[in-house]
Design a protein around this nucleic acid. Structure first.
Lengths: 211, 211
DNA sequence: CCGGAATTCTATAGAGCTATAGATCACGGT
DNA sequence: ACCGTGATCTATAGCTCTATAGAATTCCGG
């Protein structure tokens, strides 16, 4: 009884604390890191967003670097799982590739700042956690690559397509969206998903055009 | 005579100083900014690369921010001019687009660090110079957009292609190259140029595939 | 080899930032 | 009312970094 109570309190104190509040704190960190970059952002900046004192933040994370880890972890979250789910469903390589494109943009809806930080600031993580989140990136690259390779094998995609470079091209254009989308007001994400999926599959050229 | 001599000396002191040495200093700054990011890099880091004392740098630039301006200026240099030259030459929209793709990657050959810094650190410039280099980006976007629009008008490109989104897609994949190319050993830039040009024109799908 | 300009150096002021220590406040349960 | 715990606050040590001042050195034409 006593033990139980103590235990749960300690657990909270050790990592979780108030879950909701922690989420708010990390939200603010994500926002500030996204705008100013990790090194360009001070803990004071984060505190200002929240309306608390700078030192109060250290109740929720032990260092600015760990705050970055938390933001990056959440920024990388879900991509791989969603992508794997897509590849496991039935369908042509084109279907899967289209779905992968849409899926990869999906997190921008509710975690834009996190994704932005993950993409642009993860290189400032300490070695270990950098490698940890780096694995996610490589996994995603691999998935796109494999779908391209499969499509080539099936004769569905161009035989001279380089799966590796194709994957890098696609991910480049997808990951760039986070940097320009907030400044393109007349462009809902859904439209980007559709347009980009079509672009990836068929390029710009009209079918039946010269050559 | 005297006047002349004085004048030229003064000019040197005012802006140029020793051109070669200045270029070396800014080279080092570009290298360090590219690796660590602007705020993550200290002037000490730059000095270390050069084997000089930190304070010596201030003979060549008046502030770290101005050093960033110099790096970004050189990083943005030439893109627009080369692109305009391409659009003015005769050829189909496909030809021009292919040439634009190759041209856009060209500066990575001899100015990778500069381009990297321009792309990733320009947001940390003070307002005025940020807007100045921002004009270059917008000009490039415009050029790609216009070529796409022209291709659509001619019936050469898909009629449902959105020129704006197409340009952003292409530039996204092109600008991403600077971040991954140094880690992809088996991939000469020339190969990237060709592969990406083909990718942009025709996408991944094989011509004559279903639909 | 001398004098002046160009370049680099030493030393440091001054500012800003992270992180810690310990006090204080809020509040639900008893 | 009071205690315990969670949450926030005040205050500051200690560090790093930019930028300036002025001395020292190098280089180069005459």
């Amino acid at each position: 009884m006593k033990k139980r109570k103590r235990r749960s309190s300690r657990k909270l104190a050790a990592t979780g604390k108030n879950r909701r509040r922690t989420a708010e704190i990390i939200d603010a960190a994500a926002q500030v890191f996204a705008r100013r970059g990790f090194h360009g952002a001070s803990t004071q900046d984060i505190a200002d967003v929240l309306g608390v004192r700078q030192a109060s933040l250290y109740y929720y994370f032990p260092s600015k670097e760990v705050a970055l880890e938390m933001v990056c972890a959440r920024g990388a979250e879900g991509f791989v799982e969603a992508a794997i789910r897509i590849t496991e469903e039935p369908g042509t390589a084109s279907d899967k590739l289209g779905a992968l494109v849409a899926s990869h943009l999906n997190p921008l809806r509710d975690r834009r700042d996190y994704v932005h930080v993950f993409l642009n600031e993860r290189r400032h993580l300490p070695t270990e956690s950098r490698h940890r989140v780096g694995r996610h990136s490589r996994a995603i690259e691999r998935i796109f690559e494999d779908v391209l390779r499969a499509g080539v094998k099936e004769g569905e995609f161009r035989s001279d397509l380089d799966p590796r470079l194709g994957a890098l091209a696609i991910l480049g254009m997808l990951n760039a969206v986070v940097t320009w989308h907030e400044k393109e007001p007349r462009t809902p994400l859904e439209r980007v998903e559709n347009t980009f999926a079509a672009f990836v599959l068929d390029g710009v050229r009209r079918r039946g055009s010269r050559r």
